[in-house]
Each structure stands twice: as C-alpha cells, then as structure tokens.
Amino acid sequence: MASSGLELLWVSAPQLAQGIGRTLGISLLAIVFSSVGGFIYGVLRNLGVRWIDGVLRVYLELFRAIPVLVWLYLFFFGLPIFIGWSIPGFWCAVLVLSLWGASETGEVVRGALRSIPGGQREAGLAIGLRQLQLYGRVLLPQALRRMTPPLINVFTRLIKTSSLAVLIGVVDVIKIGQQIIERTYESVLIYGFLFVFFFLACYPLSAASRVLERRWNHS
C-alpha cells in the first residue's frame, strides 16, 4: 500500500499541482487584497470621522458576525439574480475572502494604530506633516511591528478558509483530490495528503508569527 500510495501521488502530481495552484491562488490574491483593504480600513477608522466610522462598523459587524460560507453562497448564488452578474467560482471566492479578510486585517491595523502614543501624531502635525505623510512616515511604520504577528495569523486563517471554495464548485486541490478518489478509492491517502498540504502551508506562518511576537514583545 505504501509504495502504491506514493506512486499514486506521483502519477497524480501534475493534476494535484494544478489544484494546489488554484487553492494557493485564491489564498494569495485574498491575502493581497485583504491587506490593502485592511490598511485603508484601519487608517479610515483612525481618522475619527463620524459617518465613515458608522459605515465601516456596519461592514465590520456584518462580515464578523455572518459566517464566510454564508457570504460565499450569497455572492455565488445571489449576484446572478440580484444584479445579473455571474462571476466564476474562483473570483467569487477571492472576492468574499478579500472582503472578510479586509475586515479582520482592518481591525488589526486599527488596533495597532491606536496603540501608538498620541504624542507621535501631535509631533508629526506640529512639524507640518500632511495626513498622508503622518501615516506613511510616522504612524504606520511604528504600528507595523505590533501588527505583523496578528496579521500573519489572519493570513493563515485565509489559507484555511480558502478550502471552502470547493463548496461553490471551484476545482481546487480538494476537488482534484475527490476526483482522484472517485477513480482509485484511495480516500485515506488523498485526504491524508490534503491534511498534510494545508498543514505545511499554514504551520510555518503560525510558527513565524509566534516567534516574532515573542521577540518583539521582549524588546
């Protein structure tokens, strides 16, 4: 079994690689978009403008409270009937994960910005920096240390959650695995492989986050 199992994985490698590419593609795109969206969210929340705060809080509560899978179904089945857009499952997953991820990263960024002493902002304004310069050169660089470990944790959650894409019909690594099982009945091997694959994708990140947190907390 062991040798035939490895053989099966070897033979299926090109197919699996394609699925891995799609799974990691969704994750990476969602990580990039979430980071951009999260930084914008964090800075906007930090400006303290009433109505912007209100709008963003509703957005945050909705994406925090309602499970990602529900959002996936809403966008995948709902967009075609509500606004007549039919987007492919892949991009639907990227969109939903990005919106969810941006709310999570956004809260991390906001928290990190809030933890910076007020004197920094006042000093920046006193020497005549504009808002953009204040954030780009003073506040965000300082907040970066504080936000990096939790941000990495959000990224691992995005990778894990990208697995849900299979439920709206994306042919990701899980679907490819299921197709191989249909042919070969090697369910233990394939699900074992998927387990290891996701573990290898996430563990280095969560370990790095822990190391960084410990190191930066002490300094």
Binding site: K160, S163, S187, Y191, L194, F195, F198
Partner: peptide
Amino acid sequence: VELARNTPLLIQLFFIYFALPAL
C-alpha cells in the same frame, strides 16, 4: 494543538466522514 489549528475544519471533516470508512 498544532495539527488541529493549522488545518481547515473542512478537511478534518472530510477525513472523518469520507476516509475513515475505508479504515
């Protein structure tokens, strides 16, 4: 803890539901 936290619930679920019957 590391195994359970670094893998998706969906895979854990599929493993139990679809792979364990083979065992």
